[in-house]
Amino acid sequence: MDLKQHIRGIPDFPKPGILFYDISTLLRNADAWQVAVGRMAHAVSKAQPDILAGVESRGFLMAAPLASKLGCGFVMLRKPGKLPGNTVSYRYDLEYGSDSLHIQEDAIKPGQKVVVVDDLLATGGTLAAAVELLRAVGADVTAAAVIIEIMALQGRRKLDVPVSALVTYET
């Protein structure tokens, strides 16, 4: 199945000049969604994770069912103020400003193998920040996995872990 047929491009969203790859059309097609989760499970299983870390918010959509399918745990990497209890944060720069990700301080046991999951790899800033945050709490980050990778932006260069992408686009 060609998963690209189930991902629509929306021009000028969220701002002019940006082509947004919308996965909602993939999610709502039961067959395409099952194929996507199955393919991602095959790719991620090679990293032998103990836990999957989903990046807010669309990363949760793939990471949670994937963790269930693989029989491993799932933790959330969230924006500020979204997690209860004590958290650890990592602040990072983006091409249009800065942001931060948070994780509960007890979410990972030191040395656990973790794969970071998100919907999209573009410039790599968010995934690189996720890797650094997870390492700060003791994780052994073994890989990253995304639904979509935009090759022209070369975000993979910012990562020092193997990356799996279900589909790639040049721009």
Rank of each mutant, 00 (worst) to 15 (best):
S68Q: 13
V163P: 14
T87N: 07
T171S: 14
I51A: 01
K113D: 01
Q154S: 15
L94P: 05
T171W: 14
P80D: 02
D106R: 04
L19K: 09
H6R: 12
L66Y: 02
P14W: 11
P16L: 07
I147K: 10
R39W: 11
P16F: 12
K46W: 03
R135T: 02
V37E: 06
A143M: 10
D22I: 11
L52H: 03
S98V: 02
C72R: 05
Q112R: 08
T126N: 07
A152N: 09
P80C: 08
R39G: 08
V146R: 06
A47V: 00
G111A: 01
D22H: 12
A32Y: 04
I10D: 00
Y169M: 08
P65R: 11
D140P: 01
E132C: 11
G138Q: 00
D140W: 03
L153Q: 07
Y92R: 09
V75D: 02
P80Q: 05
V117F: 13
Y21S: 05
R8N: 08
L134D: 00
T123R: 07
P16W: 12
M40A: 13
A129S: 07
L121H: 13
K109V: 04
D106T: 04
V116G: 10
A136S: 15
R39Q: 15
T171G: 14
G138D: 00
D160F: 05
V117W: 10
T126F: 12
I147H: 07
L61T: 13
S89P: 10
V37G: 04
A165P: 15
L27F: 12
D50F: 02
T171R: 15
R91H: 14
V44N: 06
K46P: 03
Q48W: 09
G17E: 02
I7N: 04
G54N: 06
I51N: 01
G97S: 01
D31M: 06
D160R: 15
D31F: 13
Y92L: 01
L133Y: 10
R39N: 07
Q112L: 03
V116Q: 09
G38E: 09
A63V: 06
M40V: 05
N29L: 03
M40F: 06
A128W: 10
A145K: 06
P16Q: 11
R157Q: 14
V137D: 00
V75M: 12
M76P: 08
L166K: 11
M62K: 07
D2C: 09
Q48M: 07
P162V: 07
K69C: 11
V116S: 12
L52D: 00
S68N: 10
E149Y: 13
L3R: 04
Q48V: 10
R78T: 04
R157N: 14
V37C: 12
V55C: 11
R8Y: 09
K82E: 02
P11V: 00
G97L: 05
S100F: 11
L120D: 05
A30I: 08
R135M: 04
M151W: 01
V115C: 09
N86G: 15
L61N: 01
G138L: 03
P11F: 02
L19W: 06
G97C: 01
R157V: 08
C72G: 11
A129T: 05
S24M: 14
A41V: 03
A41I: 04
Q154R: 15
L127N: 02
L134I: 00
V55E: 00
R8P: 04
R58T: 01
I150R: 03
V44C: 04
S164R: 14
A64Q: 06
D31Q: 13
H102E: 15
I148T: 01
